[in-house]
């Protein structure tokens, strides 16, 4: 848990460091949007590394509907 949080923080800070000039130039909305993307990415990273039962997105999508129903009878 701690290792994944530290790695997420490290990557986020690294991105912010290398893009600090552009962040200043592009203004506040871009800055806040970048923080949100980095925060979201870090949260996903920590979640996928530490959760006991990860809810994988496309596994959920698979269960919504069977797209091959028209072909099913002879399967």
């Amino acid at each position: 848990m701690i290792a994944s949080m530290v790695s997420a923080l490290f990557i986020s800070l690294l991105i912010l460091f290398f893009q600090r000039k552009q962040l200043q130039e592009l203004g506040r909305p871009v800055r806040y949007a970048t923080y949100v993307i980095l925060l979201l990415s870090s949260a996903i990273w920590v979640y996928t590394r530490t959760a006991e039962h990860v809810w994988y997105m496309t596994v959920g999508m698979e269960n919504l509907v069977d797209p091959l129903i028209p072909f099913r009878e002879d399967d």
Partner: peptide
């Protein structure tokens, strides 16, 4: 500018989606 944060998001989502 946006490719770098998006790259990070792509990286983590590739583990979350599949």
């Amino acid at each position: 500018f946006i490719v770098t944060p998006l790259g990070y998001l792509t990286f983590v989502c590739s583990f979350w989606f599949f």
